[in-house]
Structures are given as C-alpha cells and as structure tokens.
Amino acid sequence: MSAESPNTPVLDHDVVLWSADEATRTGRPLLVLLHGYGSHEGDLFGLVPSLPDAFAYAAVRAPLAPPFPTPGHSWYPIDGLDGRDPSHVTAAASALVSWIDRVAPDVPVGLLGFSQGGAVSLQALRLQPERFAFAVNLSGYVTPGDLPGDATIAESRPPVFWGRGTADEVIPPALIDHTTQWLPGHADLSGRVYPGLTHSVSEQEMSDVRVFLEKQLETLGG
C-alpha cells in the first residue's frame, strides 16, 4: 500500500471511464490511462478501440485544476516557482497508487500516460516497482531526483515504452536529456523517436504501442 500525506491529492472514482463493467473485467490485466495537462479522462480513452482487447482499461481524471483560463485538469502544477517540482509529481503518483490499490488490488496493472500522465506513470513505477507490470510514456519524461524504488527498478528492469517526436517543443530539453540517460539503466526500454511529430500521438506511434502491449500480454499470460 502507498503512504499518503495531507498534501496528497485524491482521485475521483466517480469520473473514471472503464472499458468494461466490474463483472467482465474481473481477473483481466488492467491498463490505466493518464491524460496530459489541461485535458480530461475522455482524451486517451478514445485510443482504447485501437489497443488490445485482452486488457481492461480505466481512464482516470487528474485531481487538480490548472490556473484560469486553461481548461481541463492537471496532475501537478507547472506554473511559477513550483513548476515541475518533483514533490508534486510524487504526490500525484502516490494518489494514483492509492486509487489502484483500492480498485485493482489483485490483478496485473500497467500504466499508459501522455505528457504529464507519462511523467506520473514513471513516478508511480518508481514508487511501487512491484505493483506495476510495465509503463508506456508518450511525450513525457522521468522526473529528476532519487526515489527509494530506483535501485529495485535498476535490478528488475521493468518494460517501459517511451515515444516522443523530434518537433516536440513542450518538454524542456533538459528533461529529455535526463530521461534519455536515466531510462536505459533502469528499464527494459523500447524507445521510439518519430521524425516531425509534435507534442502529440501519431498512428505509427500507436501501432508501436500496440505491439509493445501485445508483448506484455504474452508475458502476463493474457
């Protein structure tokens, strides 16, 4: 179980989008979808028809509201002096782990996140390496700083897919450089760089993600 502090946000169970009802998802591996900054749970849920149907899917809503006039929701603040503060990413990841502990305590769980959601997915993997089977990080990054699970990850090397575009001007170069250096030493990395892709997801990337997920299903016996 994860440890929560008074500053840990809480995910709203009532706004989660599920690909299957509780009866038909029982026992199936779960893939949790984490949207990006200023978006919502319906964003990545639209990808579900193009992904392997052996998974049950849950698209969750980030717990914070960005400053006006940005719409949607965010996992952590990126404005002002606290922008991309590692402690805020960790708090978001802790909230995610707590929610997963409640709704899926006994099934294999993978994470798929875009941008902020990608950063949170990797942070959750680092917080609870034994809890997650793999992570998919689309246009995101690894948060700088050390976490207690990093040594475990470096030894177990969980599967991670990291995709990004050469024309992505949203994620700072320093974070891309950090991720490029960190992931190969801590994960069984499937890395893809897509020429001309901006801060978005392409059909080719989703095709590569599907191949990655099908490989994970083979490992899980799904």
Rank of each mutant, 00 (worst) to 15 (best):
Val60Ala: 05
Gly221Trp: 04
Arg102Asn: 09
Thr143Pro: 00
Val16Cys: 14
Glu4Cys: 12
Pro159Met: 06
Ile153Thr: 09
Glu41His: 10
Gly222Asn: 00
Pro6Ala: 11
Val15Ala: 09
Leu197Glu: 09
Ala187Pro: 03
Asp82Lys: 11
Phe114Trp: 10
Gly145Thr: 04
Ala56Glu: 03
Ala58Lys: 09
Glu203Thr: 12
Ala174Tyr: 12
Gly165Val: 08
Thr70Cys: 03
Glu155Pro: 01
Gly222Trp: 00
Arg84Asp: 14
Phe114Leu: 08
Asp85Pro: 03
Ile78Met: 14
Arg210Tyr: 02
Arg126Thr: 05
Val109Pro: 03
Pro77Ile: 07
Ile176Thr: 13
Leu189Ala: 03
Asp12Ser: 13
Arg84Glu: 11
Leu125Asp: 01
Asp208Ala: 05
Leu217Ala: 05
Ser156Arg: 14
Ser190Val: 13
Val97Tyr: 02
Arg131Gly: 07
Asp14Phe: 02
His35Gln: 10
Thr180His: 13
Phe68Gly: 03
Leu217Met: 10
Pro173Gly: 07
Phe45Gly: 05
Ser74Val: 08
Ile176Asn: 00
Gly83Phe: 12
Gln181Thr: 13
Pro52Glu: 12
Gln204Lys: 08
Glu155Lys: 14
Val60His: 04
Ala104Ser: 15
Leu122His: 00
Phe55Val: 06
Pro129Glu: 02
Phe55Ile: 04
Asp53Leu: 06
Glu205Arg: 07
Gly80Tyr: 06
Glu155Phe: 03
Gly42Leu: 06
Gln116Cys: 10
Gln116Leu: 09
Gly83Pro: 09
Gly38Phe: 08
His73Gln: 10
Ala56Pro: 00
Gln123Thr: 15
Phe114Ala: 08
Leu17Ser: 01
Asp188Gly: 01
Leu51Thr: 07
Pro184Glu: 06
Ser121Leu: 09
His40Gln: 12
Asp82Glu: 15
Gly145Ile: 06
Asp12Ala: 13
Pro6Phe: 12
Ser115Ile: 01
Ala119Arg: 04
Val120Lys: 02
Asp21Asn: 15
Gly140Thr: 02
Asp146Pro: 01
Val32Ser: 11
Leu147Phe: 02
Val109Phe: 05
Gly221Ser: 06
His178Gln: 10
Asp150Gly: 06
Ser202Ile: 08
Leu197Ser: 03
Leu33Asn: 09
Thr24Trp: 00
Pro129Arg: 04
His178Asp: 13
Gly191Trp: 00
Ser190Asn: 08
Pro172Lys: 04
Ser115Thr: 04
Val103Gly: 04
Gly145Pro: 02
Arg84Gln: 08
